[in-house]
């Protein structure tokens, strides 16, 4: 059990760093499609982080939260991409 707790800590550190990288790219851009891509990476990392918390506490409720993040993340990224596709069309 102790090994597992240690591994969880290390993994959470890695995921936190990954979220910082994605956030940096989100703020930095340079273009809107880079920002949307970073947002997608950010929510995936956040979802994995929530799963880590679930394993740490041993409760299944975090899984439901991860499922909600996964579903909403997909819809919001798809909507943003669709906006980029249609919102700037020069006709």
């Amino acid at each position: 059990m102790n090994i597992f707790a240690l591994a969880l800590g290390a993994a959470q550190f890695l995921l936190a760093a990954a979220m910082v990288f994605a956030l940096y790219r989100l703020l930095r851009g340079p273009r809107a499609q880079d920002r949307v891509l970073s947002l997608d990476a950010l929510y995936v990392n956040a979802m994995l982080m929530v799963l880590m918390f679930g394993m740490r506490t041993g409760t299944a409720i975090y899984f439901e939260a991860a499922l909600a993040i996964g579903a909403l993340g997909f819809v919001s990224t798809a909507a943003l991409a669709k906006f980029l596709l249609r919102g700037e069309v020069i006709e």
Binding site: A7, Q12, M19
Partner: peptide, 24 residues
Amino acid sequence: ASAFAAVLVILGALLAFLGSLGLL
């Protein structure tokens, strides 16, 4: 089981980390 799960967790998080590092 928990040792195996620990390895999987580390590997998975490492891949997510490298993915975001590549994004950067």
